[in-house]
Amino acid sequence: MEVIVESDKADLFELPVSPEMVIFYITQDTQRHPLLPELKSGGFRVTGKMSTQCSLLDPISGELMVEASAVPIHSIDIHLLRVESILVGEKIVTETSLIQTTQIADGDVCRGMTLPIYVILPRLLTCPTVLAGPFSIEFKVSIVISFQSELSKLHPKSDPRTPRLWLAMETLPLELLRTR
């Protein structure tokens, strides 16, 4: 049986959290992993902004725009990641879990068109960001652009967190807060 407990604590934020917007851009030069030769030579540029601090009750919001891309886009996805860490002796052990994927675009998108980002947080898989001494639970948001490639068809079941030749990604920290 799943149980959700909510309480009215005095130390909770009274006012709604105003989302902290972070501007991002994704190009062939911002990628730290190898890309397909046609992506490196032809180039691409995706820009946008996204909230990186929000209440558990509010969605992650923002927008993005594909300014240019030499290779057609297959899809644009937003991955919500949970990062759990614990200090063991002198080492920090970290485990990252993909907890939700939201598709923003399917197929090649029009250049210069603003696409909205609106991701509702899964209630049972998220909690406030916790930094408690040797233990922490944090969250990250990854914007993943998948380009059309024959190579991607050979690996349809690949882990979306793993950088691939046909993927471009940007990962942003996300702070979740509990509010009344």
Rank of each mutant, 00 (worst) to 15 (best):
Met1Cys: 07
Met1Val: 14
Val5Tyr: 05
Glu6Leu: 07
Asp8His: 12
Lys9Asn: 13
Lys9Ser: 13
Ala10Trp: 14
Asp11Glu: 13
Leu12Cys: 03
Leu12Gly: 07
Leu12Pro: 01
Phe13Glu: 09
Glu14His: 07
Leu15Ala: 12
Pro16Phe: 06
Ser18Tyr: 15
Met21Asp: 06
Tyr25Ser: 04
Asp29Phe: 15
Thr30Gln: 08
Thr30Leu: 09
His33Thr: 11
Leu36Cys: 01
Leu36Val: 09
Glu38Pro: 00
Glu38Ala: 05
Glu38Val: 06
Lys40Glu: 03
Gly42Lys: 02
Val46Asn: 05
Val46Ala: 06
Val46Glu: 10
Gly48His: 06
Gly48Lys: 06
Lys49Met: 14
Met50Ile: 15
Thr52His: 01
Gln53Arg: 15
Cys54Gly: 10
Cys54Val: 15
Ser55Leu: 03
Leu56Gln: 09
Asp58Gly: 00
Pro59Glu: 09
Ile60Lys: 04
Leu64Cys: 07
Val66Ala: 06
Val66Gly: 07
Ala68Asp: 02
Ala68Met: 00
Ala68Ser: 03
Ser69Arg: 03
Val71His: 03
Pro72Arg: 04
Pro72Tyr: 04
Ile73Gln: 01
Ile73His: 00
Ser75Phe: 01
Ile76Asp: 02
Ile76Gly: 01
Ile78Phe: 04
His79Phe: 11
His79Thr: 07
Leu80Trp: 01
Arg82Cys: 13
Val83His: 12
Val83Asp: 11
Ser85Leu: 00
Ser85His: 04
Ser85Val: 05
Leu87Phe: 13
Val88Ala: 05
Val88Cys: 08
Val88Tyr: 12
Ile92Met: 11
Val93Ala: 08
Val93Arg: 11
Glu95Asp: 09
Ile99Thr: 10
Thr101Asn: 05
Thr102Lys: 03
Ile104Leu: 11
Ala105His: 03
Asp106Lys: 07
Asp106Met: 04
Gly107Leu: 07
Arg111Ser: 13
Gly112Arg: 10
Thr114Ile: 15
Leu115Ala: 06
Leu115Thr: 12
Leu115Ile: 14
Tyr118Ile: 00
Val119Gly: 02
Val119Asn: 00
Ile120Trp: 02
Pro122Tyr: 15
Arg123Tyr: 08
Leu124Tyr: 15
Cys127Tyr: 02
Pro128Arg: 08
Pro128Asp: 07
Val130Gln: 15
Ala132Thr: 08
Ala132Val: 10
Pro134Lys: 14
Phe135Asn: 13
Val141Thr: 15
Glu150Val: 00
Leu151Phe: 02
Leu151Arg: 00
Leu154Trp: 00
Ser158Trp: 14
Asp159Val: 09
Arg161Gly: 09
Pro163Asp: 01
Ala168Leu: 11
Ala168Phe: 14
Glu170Gly: 13
Glu170Arg: 12
Thr171Ala: 08
Leu172Val: 14
Leu174Trp: 02
Glu175Asp: 11
Glu175Ile: 14
Leu176Ala: 08
Thr179Trp: 08
Thr179Pro: 02
Thr179Met: 08
Arg180Met: 09
